[in-house]
């Protein structure tokens, strides 16, 4: 990919990644949600799906780059894809906190309009025990939150100055946690759905292929460049 095109493609990727968000926002604005039976459930699935999909897309970058040297500047899209995954994951978490917890969003909105900011907090205190209960008892919520915390850590350490501060090796070690986050995301999905429901299968297969591509690459690289000591050690055995 010619380098001079990168800024334009970046703008395009920004638009593509934001498009789902604006589609959903527009549905809210036009009243299309009024027609839906359970918009809370659909918003939850929508944000959760896009978080996982964008995380998977960000994991496509590395295997794709390895296919051909001309694709090496794809690396310049990886961070933004990861950050958008974090963006949708955060919306997903927000939907849980504000719409699923029993938080009275209508009353919160009304008090906000009347300038009673403290009310927002007292409303939150009424639902907090339920959230704590979920966190202690519900394994799908635990594993989902775990994935979000990883994404948070990766998002916070994503700027260049954080990379320099941590040092390349440490930074890379930390950011390998993205695999753990993606696996946790898939587990979160499987633990949510009923027995026999196969909705998370496509995401899981995609993730499995992306992880296998990395394992395959590592094995291939080791074959191509045998470690010198290892080959020496092998010779006496032959003799």
């Amino acid at each position: 990919m010619p380098n001079r095109l990168v800024p334009y493609i970046k703008a395009l990727v920004h638009l593509l990644c934001l498009a789902p968000f604006f589609v959903e926002l527009n549905r809210f604005r036009t009243g299309a949600f009024d027609l839906e039976a359970d918009p809370v459930a659909s918003i939850t699935h929508f944000t959760g799906d896009w978080a996982l999909w964008l995380l998977l897309v960000s994991l496509v970058v590395t295997p794709l780059r390895r296919l051909h040297p001309s694709l090496s500047n794809l690396i310049r899209f990886r961070r933004m894809l990861g950050l958008y995954a974090f963006f949708y994951a955060s919306l997903h978490l927000l939907v849980y906190v504000l719409l699923f917890s029993g938080y009275d969003i209508q009353m919160a909105w009304d008090s906000l309009k009347h300038g009673q900011v403290a009310k927002l907090w007292s409303l939150w205190l009424t639902v907090w025990p339920g959230v704590v209960d979920d966190l202690t008892k519900r394994r799908f919520i635990q594993v989902g939150l775990f994935a979000w915390v990883i994404l948070l850590a990766l998002a916070v350490t994503s700027p260049n100055f954080m990379l320099r501060k941590l040092g390349g090796k440490n930074w890379q070690r930390l950011h390998r946690l993205v695999y753990v986050a993606a696996i946790a995301g898939c587990i979160h999905y499987w633990w949510l759905v009923k027995v026999g429901v196969k909705a998370p299968m496509k995401d899981t297969i995609a993730l499995t292929l992306l992880l296998l591509a990395r394992i395959g690459w590592t094995i291939l690289k080791q074959r191509r460049e045998p470690i010198p000591n290892a080959s020496k050690a092998a010779q006496p055995a032959e003799a």
């Binding site: 039976a37 809370v40 519900r138």
Partner: peptide
């Protein structure tokens, strides 16, 4: 798997807990 203490009531408005 999840709490059953609340439900989303689906009526003519935006579903409320």
């Amino acid at each position: 798997r999840y709490s059953q203490e609340r439900e989303r009531r689906i009526d003519s408005g935006f579903p409320h807990e």
